[in-house]
Design a protein around this nucleic acid. Structure first.
Lengths: 209, 209
DNA sequence: GTATTATTTGAGCATGGACTCAAATACGTC
DNA sequence: GACGTATTTGAGTCCATGCTCAAATAATAC
């Protein structure tokens, strides 16, 4: 219906002074917190500015629109996740399936403080399908890689399939811990044990040592 | 900030003619479909009316506000779920843990066509926490009951804990089937086998026969 | 100190969407 | 067919929120 008829997608202005860089950081932090609390849609631009101690105009100086904030946050999250999954693959070699299972199941919980708005952004019903898919793929890839390192001989396809299931377990655990979802006290342990049982069964046959 | 100062919460007008009852049904069906597609927030009252072939004024005759639609839908869903879980408990007695696992894992998928908007309504970030919690509890209770029937001797607390995990597996399966989430083709089978493994391990010891 | 440029400010615009209401119309009943 | 009531209609109100912009202010360079 429209397209790039005239107004080019005005690209974000980069801060050029220390103060500006700090503002950007504060704005992103405020946005991340708010979106984690209320969700993407329910978080207003005015609120973001207010929580960062800035005025709405400052917010729009550095971010052309709300989407841009989401993108910046996802970008940031992606970097952190990459890092973390690489670290995991590095030490997965000398882990038993059970140990790997226990590490994975808590991984999102441990990462959470650094990527608070990730769940809100992944759930949001905007476009942005692309970057969301990328983020998810990266996680799956990271998990699959760790699985393959742990169970050498496991083929890539199976690793992907298992990763999908394990990623869901990780998300479930995060939900339980955040009390997004009311849970019985022992439920996390149940989840942990299911995850362990599953990976032991699925990776057990490939285990060297 | 406000409270019930004056305007009583005008209670919904009940249709008094056949035409009215049909309208209500059409409106609810349209709302359910749209909310399933777009989510609660993103679904507008105008769209709901339009899809039902009605005008906005008709919609507001039978539903005082958007929340009321959500409530009516959840009410409806609750009834269906109750029914289904009772039926399950009735036949759980002569099922092996593995069989029960396989039935449960697909239960949401099978139920889905009749409760399309349930996920959207459970995810929505409105108040309504109460009714949402009720809905979830009912599901957990239903699952726990089936587990206890299948594994007589399983105590109620453990049944609840296991139910929490199984319910999450059910939701995950629904997500996979609906392609809410991109998945490898074999991932559903992985999930199924994990669920079976888990319930077999957890309920196996109690099994009679 | 003066010029230049980055940053801040906040009133205000534009849009969309929840919700209202008085008048018109359809239905049912006698 | 006339009356009463249920239902329909849709233009219009209100308000929240994303976003704009010209003017003020602060930082930096010389």
């Amino acid at each position: 219906m429209d397209s790039n008829t005239s107004s080019e997608k005005r690209e974000p202005i980069q801060p050029r002074r220390a103060g500006g860089r700090q503002r950007v950081a504060e704005l992103l932090a405020a946005a991340s917190d708010l979106m984690a609390e209320r969700g993407y849609e329910a978080t207003t631009m005015a609120e973001i500015a207010a929580r960062a101690g800035a005025k709405i105009g400052s917010l729009y100086r550095f971010f052309p629109n709300k989407e841009a904030i989401a993108e910046a946050l996802l970008q940031h999250h992606a970097a952190i996740m990459n890092e973390e999954y690489e670290a995991l693959a590095a030490r997965a070699a000398d882990l038993s399936p059970e140990e790997l299972a226990d590490i994975l199941i808590d991984l999102m919980v441990i990462l959470y403080p650094r990527v608070k708005s990730l769940p809100a952004l992944m759930d949001a019903r905007t476009d942005r399908a692309e970057i969301r898919h990328t983020s998810r793929s990266r996680a799956l890839q990271g998990i699959a890689a760790a699985l393959q390192v742990c169970a050498s001989g496991l083929d890539a396809t199976a690793a992907q399939d298992i990763a999908v299931v394990v990623l869901n377990n990780m998300k479930t655990m995060l939900g339980m811990v955040l009390k997004d979802v009311p849970t019985t006290p022992a439920a996390p342990d149940e989840l942990r044990s299911m995850n362990r049982l599953y990976l032991a069964a699925r990776l057990g046959s490939y285990q060297r040592e």
